[in-house]
Structures are given as structure tokens and as C-alpha cells.
Nucleic acid binder design. Structure first.
Ligand SMILES: [Zn+2]
Ligand SMILES: [Zn+2]
Ligand SMILES: [Zn+2]
Ligand SMILES: [Zn+2]
Lengths: 155, 155
DNA sequence: TCGACCTTGTTATACTATAACATATCTCGT
DNA sequence: ACGAGATATGTTATAGTATAACAAGGTCGA
């Protein structure tokens, strides 16, 4: 996947619209109003949101939601590949390319908190080699790098 | 680093003793009794322990400890490179090779919960390439693979 | 119509982590 | 000796993250 997005200036409206359209297509009716709204919230920026951030926003909109509402919606989105959980942050971001997203990796800026998804980490790196040598069967890999995005590197 | 350890039958007593000796050497006096005891607890198996697991064991031994006691000891061990935090598990494992551990990656068996550390992930993989292309400066990377160890793969 | 399945609502609780303040010790320069 | 700063521990309270469990309605095919 071509690295692109959060750290560059970009047309975020269409960035968001495209992801939402793909989500509609993937899920059809299963993308219920709450789930769709949560996805929209995640798509508002490239900053990861915690479940309670999502919850708070839902409440601000008049939805009298309890924690399971947020977690269920987020779990659904993650299961459909429309969002990703960032383990280091206990938070979630929307996937901006759900159509072709496999083995994603994440670059997390510790200064501005934006997260870039840089995908398709190869299955043949040093990790895969070591796993094979051990007889370990990898099912899923979390790769999350922390550092500074271009904008936050002091000049 | 040569993959070795948890998933193979091995002399765990010396596995543990070696790590402890290296820790003593690295830390000297700073490896206080509590900190050393926590490291020993982590070294008892290759299964990751949560902070509250550690706390419970300390209490079983008569130490009237509160949560900060466990977290402080664990934070110290992590800072010294004697233990690693596994983000996916909110848990900690001892590093069995503190002397030569840099950029570790982890293989987590979802069946038996043992964790293998397979180290020295290269700085020149696809991730590093993408980061460079984005101008992102990586400071630290979490790599955690989930799957099945050899013993847990049903035949 | 029945039952299986999915979705949402709601209450309560479990698990993980840190803030903040207190106490003790050591070391170093004066 | 004295006080300042650094380090380590004790203790209380609270913040933040996540799930269990039960209830209730909707859809849809057998
Ligand atoms: Zn965008
Ligand atoms: Zn940034
Ligand atoms: Zn061992
Ligand atoms: Zn296993």
C-alpha cells in the first residue's frame, strides 16, 4: 500500500467519504445507525479515539448510551475490518482503505497523536522466518511504531 | 537472535538463573528486594503476568502490597530492559536475554499463553521503508504476533 | 407460529493504571 | 553538622478501560 494520508495535507472530506462509502458497500444493512455514526466519529480525524471518547460524543448528541453501546459498535467495526484497534493507546481508528487492508501496521505520532496506517506488511520478514523456525503458526500480528511525524519533528 | 526457549523443552532452571544473574550484573544495588522478587516471579514461567497477578503473589508471600508497588517494580524492570510489556495482554514477561535485547518481537500462543521473544527485528523491513517514505521518525516499535505454538497445534 | 439469530437497552461489576501525599534513606557540597 | 536533591517505599484514593449478565424487540425462514 502506498503510504499516504494523515501526515500530509490532503482532502480529508473525500478521504472520509470514500471510507464511508466502502463501509456501506461492505456491510449493507448491518451498518446500523449507531455503528455508522461511530464510524463517522472515527473518520473525523486521524487521531485514535478511546471507547469512552466515542461514548461521550454519542451522549453529546443526545444518545443515552452506556459503555457496551460503544464497545459493541467498535467491536463490530473491527470485526468487519472497518476500524482497527491500536493496542498501545487502547483506542481505535477507522480504516481508510477497508477494501484492500491486510496485515496493517501503524505509525503513531507521540506529539500530535495522529495515526497513519501503512499496510501490507510482508509475510516474509524476519518475524515470519523466526516463527517458522519455532514451528509457531502466526494468525495475526500487531505492529505499532511510535515516534514523530514530519510535522512534529522540530525544525 | 536465535529463536529458542519457551516452546521447546529446556532446562528452565538455568534459563531463569542466567537471566537473574544478568539482571544482578546490570542493576547492582538498584535491584532491590521487591524488584528482584518481581523479576523472579516473572521468570517462573514463560507466561506473561498482569500487574495484579504479581501483586497477588506478593501478597501471598506476606507482603502487604498495594497496586503501585507492583507497577513501580514492573516499570523499573521494563525501563532497565529486564522485562517487557506485552500490549495485547496488558501483561509482562521477563526478558531472558537482557544483555543482547534490542527491538524484540513476541510470539504469543493463544492456547497456552506462553510468550516467546524473538529478537532483533531488522530496522530495514517494509515498515521502516514506509516510515522513511512518510518522513516519520520511528522511536520504538511494538511487534506482537498471536497464534499457536507447536505444542498447541492439534495434530 | 415457532424458534434461531441479531441488535439494542440497561445495570452492575471487573480489571487495569495512576495521582497524590507521606516517610525514610543516602549522598553530596557547604 | 546541615540542608538540598535524588531515590525508594508506604498508603489512600481515584481514574480509566472493559465485560458479564439479563431483558426486550425485530427479522426471517421452517
Ligand atoms: Zn484524511
Ligand atoms: Zn505528529
Ligand atoms: Zn525457560
Ligand atoms: Zn502454546
Amino acid at each position: 500500500m502506498i503510504p499516504s494520508g494523515p501526515f500530509e495535507r490532503h482532502d480529508h472530506a473525500s478521504c472520509r467519504a470514500r471510507a464511508l462509502a466502502q463501509a456501506d458497500q461492505v456491510c449493507g444493512e448491518r451498518l446500523t445507525p449507531v455503528r455508522r455514526r461511530v464510524l463517522e466519529l472515527l473518520l473525523e480525524s486521524h487521531v485514535a479515539l478511546g471507547a469512552y471518547d466515542v461514548l461521550e460524543r454519542l451522549r453529546d448528541e443526545g444518545h443515552r448510551a452506556q459503555p457496551p453501546v460503544a464497545y459493541r459498535a467498535l467491536d463490530f467495526l473491527v470485526a468487519q475490518g472497518l476500524a482497527h484497534r491500536i493496542e498501545r493507546l487502547n483506542a481505535f481508528i477507522a480504516c481508510h482503505r477497508p477494501a484492500d487492508c491486510e496485515a496493517p501496521a501503524f505509525l503513531i505520532c507521540r506529539a500530535c497523536n495522529r495515526v497513519a496506517e501503512t499496510g501490507n506488511t510482508p509475510k516474509r520478514g524476519a518475524l515470519a522466518r523466526d516463527a517458522r523456525a519455532l514451528g509457531f503458526e502466526i494468525e495475526e500480528t500487531v505492529i505499532e511504531a511510535r515516534g514523530l511525524c514530519p510535522a512534529c519533528q522540530t525544525p
